[in-house]
Design a protein around this nucleic acid. Structure first.
Lengths: 158, 158
DNA sequence: GACGACCGTGGGCGCGGCCAACGAGTTGCT
DNA sequence: AGCAACTCGTTGGCCGCGCCCACGGTCGTC
C-alpha cells in the first residue's frame, strides 16, 4: 500500500504554510457558505463596512476592507445592480461617490451574518472556546504587526 | 482628519478573516523572499517534497504538496528546464513519470530553506517563542481536522 | 477481454490581490 | 491667481493559486 502520503516535514512545520492551509480551509468554508447566498467575500466585506460606518466613498471603503480601488468599482457595481446599495455623487466633493447601504442590503447582511457565524463555527470546530480565544489573539497580533497596507518606507533617512 | 480608517469590527473579529489576513502577510513575505531567488511557492514545495521522500510520481507529489495534477505538470516543467529535477518514465508502470531531484536542485533547496527560515522569522516577529508554539499547535489542529483534501463523502447511506 | 481506476497532459475558469495610467476634481503653496 | 501635488473613480491588465473537466494511454482485476 502506498496510500497515506504525508506532507513533508519541512512544509508541515512551516508556520507560513500552516497559516495558509488554515486560511484555505476557512476560505473554502466561508466561500461555499456565501456562494449559497449568491455572494462572494468581497460583497460581504463591503456590506459589513457600509453597515458599520455608514455611507462612505469607494476609496474609504477600500481602505477599510482591504479591497483595491479598482476591484471596488466592480464590487459596488454588482451590489448596486441588486439594489443592496446605492451610489450617488458627493455634492461636496465631485470626485467622490457616496455609497450607502439600502434597506434590502441591511436585511441581506443580517442573513449573511448568520451564515458567516455558522461558517466560523465549522472552521473552529476542533477548538474549545479557550483555544479559540488564543488563536484570535495570536492572529490579531500578527496582522496588527505587519500592518495590512503595503508600506514602502523610504529606507534609511536620506 | 478622516485618516485612521479602521476595519469594521464584524470583519476584524472574524477568525476566518484573521486567518486569511495572517496568511496574506505570510505569503507576501515568503513570496517576496522566494521571488528574490527566482522561484515561486510551488517550486519550493515540490523540491522540498522530493528531497524528503525521494523520487516519486507526479501524482504522488501532488498528493503530498497539495498541488493539483494539472498544475504539477507546469511546475515540474519549469524546474526541469532549470535542471533542478529530472523527469523519467517509470519502466515498471508506463503511466508514471519518476521525478527526482538533481544535485543542483538539492543545493538550490538548501539556499531556499535558509531564505524561507528567514521569512518565518519575519512573519512571526511579534510573537515570543512560547506563543509561536501555541500558534503552530492551534493551526496544526485546525488543518488536521478539515483534512486538506476535498472530501466528498457520499452523504447519508443510500 | 472488458471494466474501472489511475496517470500525465492540455485547456479552461474564477477569485483574490496587485499595479499602471488617465481624466476629472481638489487642496496647498506661493 | 496660478501651479503642483494629491485624490478619486474607472479601465485594463497581470499573475498565482486553487480548482475542474476531458482525453488518451496504461495498469489491475474480475
Amino acid at each position: 500500500m502506498e496510500t497515506a502520503e504525508g506532507t513533508p516535514r519541512r512544509l508541515r512545520a512551516l508556520p507560513s504554510r500552516l497559516a495558509n492551509q488554515a486560511a484555505l480551509s476557512a476560505n473554502r468554508i466561508v466561500d461555499r457558505t456565501l456562494a449559497g447566498a449568491g455572494v462572494r467575500r468581497y460583497h460581504y466585506a463591503l456590506l459589513a463596512a457600509l453597515a458599520e460606518f455608514g455611507p462612505a466613498s469607494q476609496a474609504a471603503l477600500g481602505r477599510r476592507t482591504g479591497i483595491d480601488r479598482s476591484d471596488m468599482v466592480a464590487t459596488v457595481n454588482e451590489l448596486a445592480d441588486r439594489r443592496l446599495l446605492e451610489r450617488a455623487p458627493d455634492p461636496a466633493d465631485r470626485r467622490r461617490n457616496i455609497v450607502s447601504i439600502t434597506a434590502a442590503g441591511g436585511d441581506r447582511l443580517a442573513d449573511l451574518d448568520r451564515l458567516v457565524a455558522d461558517a466560523q463555527e465549522e472552521f473552529l470546530a476542533p477548538l474549545p472556546a479557550a483555544d479559540r480565544r488564543s488563536l484570535v489573539d495570536l492572529l490579531t497580533r500578527l496582522v496588527d504587526h505587519h500592518g495590512d497596507r503595503r508600506r514602502a518606507e523610504p529606507g534609511p533617512e536620506a
